[in-house]
Amino acid sequence: MRERLALLLCGLTLVLATGLAWLFAVRHNPRPSHRAPPAVSPPAQSVTGARLFLEQGCANCHAIGGAGNPRYPLDGVAARRDRAELEAWIGGTGVAAGQLAGSVVRRKERYRELPAEDMAALLDYLQAAGGGRP
């Protein structure tokens, strides 16, 4: 009797939690989610940039072409920022430093030490792939 009630309540908890999670997802995103179409194949010189985007943990917080954290997508970012601004946002310096949370700036500090050729490849990638969808 009591065991049945306990198991029933466990089942109810699972169903309610999953149901409410789904309800939230649907209500908060009126249109079904879709992975953004993969950006145009990056040109040869930004293949390294694409690899760095994943290796350096950029995808922890950002997505390009549907790959990565959809919270802060970078599709079309090159249409909004020039190369110098992009570099500032990568390293959390200049204008970016004032607009980011302290913890995020601290996290971005490591990118200021990227070798120049890696930073260039990353910027190439953002400008090529990240510029696909303004």
Binding site: A21, F24, A25, N29, S33, P70
Partner: peptide, 15 residues
């Protein structure tokens, strides 16, 4: 939101 799948996965963590 971050899309239905993203927010569903996230909300399960809260649950």
């Amino acid at each position: 939101g971050g899309g239905r799948r993203w927010d569903f996965a996230l909300a399960l963590g809260f649950g």
